[in-house]
């Protein structure tokens, strides 16, 4: 029998109760929210249970919602069950002042760099990651550039010496 979204939702609510919430299906992709300290348990459950079998981590990334006070940073997981060809997405929210989220890199080798990238751009501290350092940006950078508090440079600014860029 094909794996249905109702079945996934039912199995998750049975196991995790209130820790999983906000089930939606935008554009046909089952999406839900997981309590911050349950993310690894949910990942493990989805990975190990024979009927769920979400053993492929498609994507892991961060989002910054500055308006959500207390839950400004989101970590978004996209999982894929390749056998039944079902995708799901879930999100955990963390406080920007203490953005500690458990690492998925022990379960998925793929998560290693994806988490380093998320750390690099959003400053999410993946607890248990054995090599959490910057990956794409320079090591000496002291801010997390994809956070909304760092706007892109004003394109109309004139105080810059443009000679070096051939615009002088």
């Amino acid at each position: 029998m094909a794996l249905t979204q109702e079945h996934i939702q039912q199995r998750l609510t049975e196991k995790f109760g209130d820790f999983v919430s906000n089930f939606e299906s935008p554009y046909g992709l089952l999406s839900f929210e997981v309590a911050k300290d349950q993310n690894l348990k949910v990942l493990q459950f989805l990975f190990q249970e024979a009927d769920l079998n979400f053993q492929f981590l498609t994507d892991l990334t961060g989002v910054n919602y500055p308006a959500n006070i207390g839950r400004e940073l989101a970590v978004v997981y996209h999982l894929h069950n390749l056998r039944d060809n079902v995708r799901i997405r879930f999100t955990v929210y963390a406080d920007i002042l203490s953005p500690d989220v458990f690492t998925a890199s022990k379960l998925f080798s793929a998560a290693n760099w994806m988490e380093r990238e998320t750390y690099d751009f959003f400053g999410v501290n993946f607890v248990g990651h054995n090599n959490l350092k910057r990956i794409l940006n320079a090591d000496e950078m002291d801010y997390f550039p994809l956070r909304k508090e760092y706007p892109l440079e004003d394109q109309t600014r004139i105080d810059k010496d443009d000679e070096m860029f051939g615009r002088g």
């Binding site: 053993q55 492929f56 981590l57 498609t58 390749l82 998925f108 080798s109 793929a110």
Partner: peptide
């Protein structure tokens, strides 16, 4: 195959 899948 297992490692490749685990590595995404």
């Amino acid at each position: 195959a297992e490692r490749a899948l685990n590595y995404g």
